[in-house]
């Protein structure tokens, strides 16, 4: 019940975003104009961002707005219905290889940049984890595991989200300029954008198919969260001479994002033909409604002032690292799409 006002706010902002998308499309149709199709996701984020950073979000709404993480995960589980195992297998090997390269690259690059610029080592670890796996949940998971400060964690989250917001505008423009296919673009967005909501949004801004591949690459990255966080936890535990208690398997299971299991289960059921075509469309629509709430929440949670307060060095390191990763993954994907005609 405490969450109700905030939920209504998410729904109102998200729905306004949907109306804006439809309004622009029907205006263009009526006047025979070719207007760019800007999806509801970006409008929802934009409206949320403006509201949060002008009038602010009153306390009564906060509990409901904080549920956006649930809607994100729910939306992703539903999205499983659009991934038939055949598609996954087709993409599997190549995408997995790319994910491995991206992980190694981001961790090495961020650690080196942080050391080189004399950044606090725990913040460096958080930025490395955030940029290699998945912005927010990885940072939250890692924060507990390596005992980092709240300020470091919120800065790392803010930096990852801000860079992701920038990529929402930059990525589709670059994709269109290079004439990338839906498949190639989605793969790139899933590899280079760090927040799951923003990676999905970047894909969705390009096309429905691109969103599909973005989520696929992104969920593969997300699935490695346990291993990377475990590695960092062991590193920092050893460094602070603290005894690491409990079994490693239990630790991995604890940190493993469970919604990935739901996603796989729904995808498996759809592959086996459990749902009719109409039922699959219904489930896919449920995922759109869940994302509508998610993206309104992402906008509302982005605090521009908070970001400015923390100084620019970590953001600069984050930005340099992210640009380099985006560039290298773009080269990989474009190269692969030439070679294998993605």
């Amino acid at each position: 019940m405490k969450a109700l006002p905030g939920l209504l706010l998410l729904a109102a902002i998200g729905y306004l975003g949907k109306l804006t998308e439809q309004g622009i499309a029907s205006y263009g149709k009526a006047h025979h104009l070719h207007l760019p199709n800007i999806e509801y996701v970006l409008w929802a984020i934009l409206y949320g961002l403006i509201l949060a950073n002008t009038v602010g979000v009153p306390r009564v709404f906060r509990a409901g707005v904080a549920t956006y993480e649930f809607w994100l995960k729910l939306g992703i589980v539903f999205l499983g219905v659009r991934f038939l195992l055949g598609d996954v297998l087709k993409l599997g090997g190549l995408s997995l290889g790319f994910v491995a390269v991206e992980l190694a690259l981001s961790i090495l690059l961020m650690s080196w940049l942080g050391k080189w610029m004399g950044l606090n080592p725990k913040l460096t670890s958080l930025l490395a984890i955030g940029s290699s796996i998945c912005g927010v949940s990885a940072i939250i998971a890692a924060k507990g595991a390596i005992d980092a400060d709240d300020e470091d964690a919120s800065y790392a989250i803010a930096a990852i989200l801000a860079l992701g917001a920038f990529s929402l505008f930059a990525f589709p423009a670059i994709g269109h300029a290079l004439g990338m296919s839906d498949h190639a673009f989605g793969l790139w967005a899933g590899l280079a954008v760090d927040n799951t909501a923003e990676a999905t949004a970047a894909g969705a801004l390009y096309s429905d198919t691109a969103a599909k591949f973005a989520v696929l690459a992104k969920t593969t990255r997300n699935a490695t969260i346990g291993f990377v966080v475990l590695g960092y936890a062991l590193y920092w535990a050893r460094k602070s001479q603290k005894e690491f208690s409990g079994s490693r398997v239990a630790f991995l299971w604890n940190k493993f994002p469970k919604f990935v299991l739901g996603f796989l289960l729904i995808s498996f059921a759809a592959t086996l033909g459990v749902f009719t075509k109409a039922q699959m469309a219904d489930i896919a629509n449920l995922s759109r409604w869940a994302f509508l709430l998610t993206f309104a929440g992402v906008g509302l949670q982005t605090n521009i002032r908070e970001l400015r307060k923390q100084g620019l060095k970590p953001l600069a390191i984050g930005a340099i690292g992210e640009f380099a990763i985006a560039g290298i993954t773009l080269a990989m994907v474009v190269g692969a799409s030439r070679a294998f005609e993605l």
């Binding site: 729910l74 469970k258 739901g262 729904i266 059921a269 449920l286």
Partner: peptide, 30 residues
């Protein structure tokens, strides 16, 4: 036992999928 957001998202989604499968939830428009 308190379930995490992750588990709730899985339970909710699977529940909704079952309801759709057996025609209990009506058609969902977009």
């Amino acid at each position: 036992m308190k379930l995490s957001v992750d588990w709730w998202s899985v339970i909710t989604a699977l529940g909704a999928a079952v309801l759709i499968k057996f025609g209990i939830l009506p058609h969902i428009p977009w």
